[in-house]
């Protein structure tokens, strides 16, 4: 401990330190109580996944059925489909979202006109802050049968496509609209990464006659690589995030085949269908895989990039 040679006598200092520690506990207490009620009590509530939970009987009165709900779940053809959809949709969003954000950041970095740069940034960040409730209306306006896109297709003499009601088109639509919503905002972090690349390298390469493509490929991208790698690793746990808000606002029974995700499935079967225990079982399965993924991602990040999430 540091040597204290200030005015306060040692005995008082010690008392102060003790008092400070008590205050620290007191400061943390309100937040911990909220976490206890709204995070840890539901974790305890997971026991309902092993019960035939009846709300009137509660967690303590409901009958235990062991792993029955899990057995039922794994025998359900729907489950594989729902997990597959979730992973395909989430991976699509992560991969295409990152690629567009990286490309956009590199291009935006070339814009020298302040007015253009600022205006474009202002606009492309905007969708990130809007709710899917709002953006779903935008998507429907564009992609419904008489929407703008179909009007354009029609004017070229092509057949109209029922994007929102087609199992071929629904996943690309979810991925595309999410990429559209987020690419601008995601480019922020990549722009910062580009800014940290040493400009001297570019000058040297220019003198050696390297053209723009070559400099992007050999200088800018390698300079961004640590951030790209870090974000890629840290997005790993998101492969189980189908994006409830988006899917719920756009899907319909016709596209359950390709559009139903874990979150929407649990909501429908567990909450709306009041099959509480089954919903909790699916939710638990998802949470456990999610936890494993996030811990692995954190370890991988520590190992490969010497950074970590927590």
């Amino acid at each position: 401990m540091a040597v204290n040679n200030q005015v306060a006598p040692a005995r008082d200092r010690k008392k102060d330190v003790k008092k400070a520690k008590l205050t620290y506990h007191a400061m943390l207490a309100p937040g911990m109580i909220f976490l206890l009620i709204f995070s840890f009590a539901p974790m305890f509530g997971i026991i309902m996944a092993f019960q035939d939970f009846v709300p009137a009987k509660g967690f303590f009165g409901s009958e235990f059925v062991g792993l029955e709900h899990f057995k039922y779940m794994f025998n359900l053809p729907d489950i594989g489909k729902v997990f597959r959809n979730t992973i395909v949709i989430a991976l699509g969003k992560i991969i295409f979202g990152s690629l567009l954000a990286i490309a956009f950041a590199i291009l935006l970095n070339e814009i020298r006109l302040k007015l253009v740069k600022k205006s474009v940034q202002t606009i492309v960040y905007l969708p990130h802050f809007l709710s899917w409730v709002v953006l779903a209306t935008v998507v429907v306006n564009l992609f419904s049968l008489d929407g703008t896109v179909n009007q354009i297709l029609h004017s070229f003499g092509l057949d109209r496509i029922n994007f929102l009601g087609s199992n071929t088109w629904f996943q690309p639509l979810l991925i595309g609209s999410d990429v559209w919503k987020e690419f601008g905002f995601n480019s922020v972090i990549y722009l910062a990464a580009i800014a940290s690349v040493d400009p001297g390298l570019h000058e040297a390469a220019s003198i050696d006659g390297a053209n723009w493509w070559k400099r992007v490929w050999h200088i800018t991208l390698p300079g961004m690589l640590p951030i790209i790698l870090l974000l890629a690793i840290l997005s790993l746990p998101n492969v189980l995030e189908g994006g409830f808000d988006q899917v719920y606002n756009l899907y319909s029974p016709i596209v359950y085949e390709t559009g139903d995700t874990i979150d929407t499935y649990v909501y429908r079967e567990g909450l709306v269908g009041r099959d509480y225990s089954f919903g909790a079982a699916v939710g638990l399965f998802r949470s456990v895989i999610g936890l494993i993924l996030i811990l692995s991602a954190n370890n991988a990040a520590k190992k490969f990039t010497e950074r970590k999430l927590f």
Partner: peptide, 25 residues
């Protein structure tokens, strides 16, 4: 405290148990 908080961030009881707890309250 930090470990408790991080655990609460990484793991959740899920939609249904949370709903039941809130309903009981």
């Amino acid at each position: 405290y930090m470990n408790i908080i991080i655990f609460a961030m990484l793991f959740s009881g899920g939609l249904i148990p949370t709903y039941i707890v809130i309903r009981n309250l």
